[in-house]
Design a protein around this nucleic acid. Structure first.
Lengths: 333, 333
DNA sequence: CTGTTAGCGCGTTCAT
DNA sequence: ATGAACGCGCTAACAG
């Protein structure tokens, strides 16, 4: 179904009595057109409802100013924050962004990468390192900048701006261990879904010199998962003295579950979140958590791509760190 | 900065010893190529890292299978739900989606519409009716389907799938008024930001036969805004007997504020949210709210566009309705 | 300051 | 079953 014919640059040229090139130059604000003509052409373009055709432009330029961004989910303020910083930075640089959510599925991601590449993007942002081998190979060959965010590794496909989640888990664990807690538990997601959380769990185990008791509710909503996880924990045998949660939302759900069972936090059990989202400022008791540099991460990832596009050198990998937020859901034991 | 030359269809053709047309047909799975040749061409394409060029394809076809979606924000599970239903529906139909957030700014929206149109999208989804006149004019002339979602009006630019928010406010207000509440308040956002919320407020006033006492915190995070709004309310003169909140997150913040002031909900004051998000299932007391058909709305909006693209007729406007969730944060007075 | 030529990669159309 | 010619809308490169 071909669309109705749109007005093209040559239509304007005919109407203005000039050549197509002059119109092209005038509309792009390129020098080489008298101001009188330019003004006439611009007003003519508006009157004829001219809309430039980026598909044609991209074809001649063999290039676009599009950057594709793949995130696991939008149901999480973490990624909304990252995205916010990233898009603002790109927008200021005149770069348009295209967002995709993969729902933590590498296959979905791989399909998206293929589709995106066919639009000749200027750059690509991926979340984490769990890509299909085909994706890694494809992107390694493509000549465009690729940034992997959120997670951190020294050997990214191309560039990387993220956090060392194992170190983050270790730091958070060390703080809580230092308060005297000795029977830690962890409420996470179904295995394999969130690799970063699993790495934090490894760090936590390290800090406690023992494996954590792990609960994996399957609810997809984080609040509900937290409450379900909290209940699983209450109904399990030995009660832990502190529970680390995959994120703040899960921690909130767990907190509600504990209260539902008549437990006082932090007197009867400690609760620790992750991310330091605004909701933690509103809870009945301030949540102990780790503040993650989300917006900053987005900004730096965008800058890394922009540097590449401008031919400026930029570090291959960059590791940001989180900050322990003491809060009041743990206390010295 | 031209990119390195990508392998094209003619490169594959040369390698396979056939014409470009044969390769094109083979790769698109169009009949008219012997299976032997097709298999060879496909494997050759893979080996040469061929990536089709959509900019060229779009140019010849004067058409893409892209649909653009503009939402006010991603910091809100409401829109994540709408988006989820919409994208799933489009994906099943082989349509790619491009998301933009406008942050409730019609100017941002207008700029995005211009940019998007230059990519020759197959359709456009906008949120609400607060568009710049230029946008309405432009879209009215374009020959592609346009759906306005979330809000409802009988005279959309093209199509509309949403809710009558004034009616929703009236229904919710009637329920609460029927319980005997008589001194209602409202916690919203800064004026002019969320037009739908203002319409609900009108409906609430109608149900109560009086204007509501309105509080407008300026925090951008909904939880924090709710808490701030709750505090404003506590510190104001006459205490209302029930407070309607712009959404569930604000209601949660307000609930926490009330508790902080030693008030019991619902004994001392009633609290009502909007949307029926999962968080309401996890609160210490189940929130009275109105469940909105978010996912359904996304699905129906996508279907409306798909119908248009397939030349099937579809209703110009469709009005979905919310459901009162009784909850336990109000009680008979 | 302005115009002409050529070609970007692909798909339609019409031959063979 | 396969191929050749042509054009999509635009812009780089070169001429004038």
């Amino acid at each position: 179904m071909k669309r109705q014919r749109q007005t093209r640059i040559t239509d304007i040229a005919a109407a203005a009595g000039v050549s197509a090139m002059t119109v092209s130059r005038a509309l792009r604000g390129i020098e080489g057109v008298s101001e009188a003509k330019r003004a006439e052409i611009v007003s003519l373009a508006k009157r004829l409802n001219y809309v430039p055709d980026m598909t044609a432009r991209a074809l001649t330029l063999a290039n676009t100013n599009l950057v594709g961004i793949a995130l696991p989910t939008l149901f999480n303020d973490v990624f909304a924050d990252v995205l916010s910083g990233m898009r603002a930075t790109f927008r200021n640089a005149g770069i348009a962004t295209v967002i995709e959510t993969t729902d933590y599925d590498p296959v979905v991601e791989a399909e998206w990468v293929e589709r995106l590449l066919s639009w000749r993007p200027a750059g690509i942002v991926l979340t984490g390192f769990d890509h299909l081998p085909a994706v890694r190979e494809r992107l390694a060959k493509v000549q465009i900048p690729v940034v992997e965010i959120w997670d951190w590794r020294p050997d990214p496909i191309d560039l990387c701006v993220g956090m060392d989640h194992e170190a983050a888990g270790r730091a958070l664990g060390a703080y809580v261990h230092g308060l005297g807690y000795r029977r830690p538990a962890f409420i996470g997601a179904i295995k394999g879904r969130d690799t970063r959380a699993e790495r934090r769990l490894v760090g936590l185990s390290g800090a406690f010199h023992q494996p954590l008791q792990v609960f994996r509710p399957h609810q997809s909503n984080a609040f509900e998962a937290g409450m379900a996880g909290g209940r699983m924990m209450m109904e399990a045998g030995e009660r832990p003295d502190v529970v680390f949660c995959l994120n703040d939302h899960i921690a909130f759900g767990a907190l509600m579950a504990c209260r539902g069972f008549g437990l006082n936090v932090p007197d009867d059990i400690g609760i620790v979140g992750f991310n330091g989202l605004p909701i933690t400022n509103v809870l009945p008791v301030e949540l102990t958590t780790m503040l993650t540099p989300r917006r900053e991460m987005g900004v730096m990832a965008a800058r890394a791509i922009l540097s590449r596009l401008n031919g400026v050198s930029t570090p291959r990998h960059r590791c940001l760190i989180g900050t322990v937020v003491p809060g009041a859901t743990v206390r010295r034991q």
